[in-house]
Structure formats: C-alpha cells, structure tokens
C-alpha cells in the first residue's frame, strides 16, 4: 500500500481493521505514529462529546403524552385547547427565554474575545494608571468613575478591542478573589434583558445599560457580583 492510500484511509477511519491496512503498518514507524495520533484524536473527540452537559431535566420532558381515554368530542376539545395553550406557551417562552440571534452573537463575541485575550491579560499583573484606563474608555465612548474606598478598582489591563467583527469596546481586567475578571463595555444597542454567559472556563453576565452593554466575565470560581455592582454604579456612556 503506498503512502497516499495509507494516509487517506488512516484519516478516514483510524480504526480500519482491514488486513491490507494493518499489514501496511509492518516495519513503518512513521505509519504507526500517524495512526496512534489519529486514534488519540478520536478518543479526545469522544471525550469532548461526552463532557457536554446534558440538561438535568431533559429526560423528564421526553415522557410520552398521557394515554387518551376521553370521548372523541372531549378529545377534540382537549386537543384544541392544549394546542392553543402549547402555542401560546411556546410563543411566550420563545420570546422570553430563547436568546435572539443578536443576543447570541453578542454572547459569542464576548466569550470569544475573553478567550482570545486571556493569554495577554494573564501576563499583565501590574496595576496601570487610571489615566490610561480613562484613555481607553474614552476611545470606546464610555467613562467610568474610579470608585473610592473599598470599591476602588485595581486595573491590570485596558485595551480598546474589536468584538465580533464590527463592535468596538473597552476591555478592562481587574483582579477578583480567585483570578482576573474581565469587564467589557461596548456601545451597542442595549439588550432587552441581562444574559448569562457560560462555557467550560468562564461565566458571567451581559447587562444592558443606557447606551450599550456591559459584560463581567471571570473564571467559574470567581465572585462577580461585586464587580458588576461597582461598574454598574459608576459607568457613564458618552455621546
């Protein structure tokens, strides 16, 4: 078997057990190594898939509908009423609880940005001057009063950043109890409600404000409420 065929078959199915494929491994360490890598990749893909969080109540919602014992007429009336109820419920729940495309886009942009910037802000542990912070905020069309006393913020990272391709915002990082906490302030149409942000590493919330949106995002163990409250109380959106 030539290298091209082996390469193709290994990538198509690393667990190919056809004799000609397995025989092609004999005396070829490079092929063994490639196959080992591809099998490990498959094992890791499976591990990633199995780590997906299954919603706790999902199983309960999949029960079959109750058995029908009513008369034809009552069944029909019941079906119509139930359909109406379900439709109204679906519309309401869809409108209220399912994130809209714009909410999802902002959610994704915020999380992606924090992931992208984490290697940089994790290197910045020295507090920067408030003047530098104000300069960044002004560039993004936001101003923030430095709180006093216990609420005083120590900022270790401040940059004007692009988010999701078209948005521009200020990304500040302050130190929380357990690690860095990102505060992202973006002038964009405010969301209709607060939106939780969560992935395997980070969690937080996007909060709509007068003329924009504010996200406070930290590692899972971080207490974010205090930072959110401080920022909310002191932020002003410039014209």
């Amino acid at each position: 078997m030539d290298d091209l065929e082996f390469h193709t078959r290994a990538h198509t199915d690393p667990f190919d057990e056809e004799p000609d494929f397995l025989n092609a491994l004999a005396g070829r360490e490079d092929r063994h190594n490639l196959l080992h890598e591809l099998r490990q990749l498959d094992e890791n893909i499976r591990a990633v898939s199995e780590n997906i969080d299954i919603p706790v109540r999902l199983r309960q919602t999949l029960a079959p509908p109750p058995a029908e014992t009513r008369s034809w007429l009552s069944q029909r009336a019941y079906a119509i009423a139930a359909s109406l109820l379900v439709s109204v419920g679906l519309v309401v729940s869809t409108l209220q609880f399912r994130p809209s495309a714009s909410e999802l886009a902002l959610h994704d942009a915020m999380l992606q940005h924090v992931h992208d910037e984490a290697p940089r802000y994790e290197q910045s542990t020295t507090p920067i001057s408030w003047l530098e912070v104000e300069t960044v905020l002004a560039d993004a069309g936001v101003s923030l009063q430095q709180p006093t006393g216990d609420e005083r913020l120590i900022i270790t990272f401040a940059k004007v950043c692009g988010l999701g391709g078209s948005l521009r915002g200020a990304h500040l990082v302050t130190m929380g109890k357990n690690g860095p906490v990102s505060v992202i302030l973006v002038r964009s149409p405010p969301l209709g409600r607060s939106l939780d942000v969560k992935d395997s590493r980070f969690r937080g919330r996007i909060v709509p404000a007068d003329d924009g949106n504010m996200a406070v995002i930290g590692e899972h163990a971080e207490e974010l409420g205090r930072v959110e409250q401080i920022i909310t109380s002191n932020v002003e959106w410039s014209i």
């Binding site: 591990a47 990633v48 997906i52 994704d108 992935d199 899972h220």
Partner: peptide
C-alpha cells in the same frame, strides 16, 4: 438562524478526572 461562527463551548462540564 444565522450560522454563528466561533461560538464557544458553552456547555462543557468540568471533569475532575482530567
């Protein structure tokens, strides 16, 4: 639904075995 690019792993469980 628009195809959202770069959506991150929003529901991966922490696995202490790893």
């Amino acid at each position: 639904r628009p195809e959202l690019v770069d959506i991150d792993d929003v529901s991966i469980e922490e696995d202490d075995r790893n």
